[in-house]
Design a protein around this nucleic acid. Structure first.
Lengths: 211, 211
DNA sequence: TTCGCCATGTTAGTGTCGCTAACTTGCCTT
DNA sequence: AAGGCAAGTTAGCGACACTAACATGGCGAA
């Protein structure tokens, strides 16, 4: 899902050698991730990324069509990270078990807490970003994880043929709500010292038990 | 010059008569609300608001310290609207009943669906906005509604003294998650044609039943 | 009635940003 | 060894947030 332009160049580990940077695309991605982590996606500027990478402000446009294209690349990396986090958390548990589903939800929350600005980039409303097929696909792939778990859960409850979507949406809404409130501040302001994981655990069990 | 009868310094419903606008503060607030509704808080610019109000780009700074101060004023109006919507929806039902709590949650969702960009302004991460005491207070006041309902609900279940906070946070997380996913797009993309209200209804009942 | 204060407008200007155009450099193929 | 072309550069455009200094005119006081 990348190759903007054709020719090979010095690839990995390249340092600035002279006139040419050598690995600017990767350097910009790393700069963007760092700056987004630090200041949030809204305050990210191309100029900042250029300064951090040590190039002129026109250089990025050889590698990314515009600011949003760079954001898109960062966004997709973030989705990969989220999928890895949730997938990894479920691994130790039996597929379709309550524990595995809750572990996935808590990993989703953990990712949001550890990478709040990435999370905002992924789920904030940026119509231009949302409409990019790659981003949409990455999000969909993430959700497949949950759908599969829910299908297995329903099967273990004797509902093999049932549509997993309604239950998956309930669980996703819960977990996403906890994560959003936790990182956007209201939860800390309103109820400092609470435990977001506990909310997922208790409400999640209630929702699963109601099937 | 031109002026009809000599209404001095018109306060309400004022039209531009000459050098002075007459009611610029209110005009800017209305322009900002319209522009935010149309293009989202991130794409709102002071210059747009000025054009819509028919004044120069320097004029707003006589009424608002900066862009964020204007956003703050819009944000607080939005919190008032949310409080009114949720409070009004609960009114027909007995305080503390399951139906009243669910109605409040659905009204919260309804507000988000009807005013997605306002909702994003209120709950999106804008550290400068969040830290303003007025905004924090408005948000807290909104939450008091829910806390009161949950207290009454617990009392009706024979738990008069219990702390309503944990249950309130579970419900808020659920409703906020549904609203966020519904307006930020993922829900439509992943599961078009679903019914967000049903999620609140079903999960809400499950969470309340687990008390 | 007149006068002048000063709130509320204005124009002009600064620095930053996203992005483009046109030029330059130097790696890689031939 | 030559030169094509990817990938840098500088310069510049228009938009933005915000400021400074100036202009207007409504209103209260003399």
């Amino acid at each position: 899902m990348q190759q903007e332009a054709g020719a090979p160049k010095q690839k990995a580990g390249a340092q600035r050698r002279g006139y040419h940077h050598g690995n600017l695309r990767e350097a910009l991605l790393e700069a963007a991730e760092a700056l987004i982590t630090e200041h949030g996606p809204d305050n990210f500027t191309m100029a900042d990324a250029c300064r951090r990478a040590g190039v002129s402000t026109a250089a990025p446009y050889r590698h990314f069509e515009d600011r949003n294209a760079l954001m898109e690349a960062v966004c997709m990396r973030a989705f990969d990270g989220l999928a890895a986090a949730t997938g990894g958390a479920k691994a130790p548990f039996e597929e379709g078990s309550v524990e595995s589903i809750l572990a996935g939800g808590k990993a989703y929350l953990g990712f949001a807490l550890e990478n709040p600005e990435r999370f905002r980039l992924m789920f904030g409303r940026n119509p231009d970003l949302k409409s990019r097929p790659h981003v949409e696909l990455a999000g969909r792939a993430c959700f497949q994880n949950l759908l599969a778990s829910v299908s297995a859960f329903l099967a273990s409850r004797g509902q093999s043929g049932a549509d997993p979507m309604p239950l998956a949406l309930r669980l996703w809404s819960l977990v996403h709500g906890v994560a959003s409130l936790a990182i956007d501040g209201p939860m800390d302001i309103i109820a400092p010292g609470n435990d977001p994981e506990a909310i997922i655990d208790e409400s999640g069990r209630a929702i699963l038990a109601a099937v």
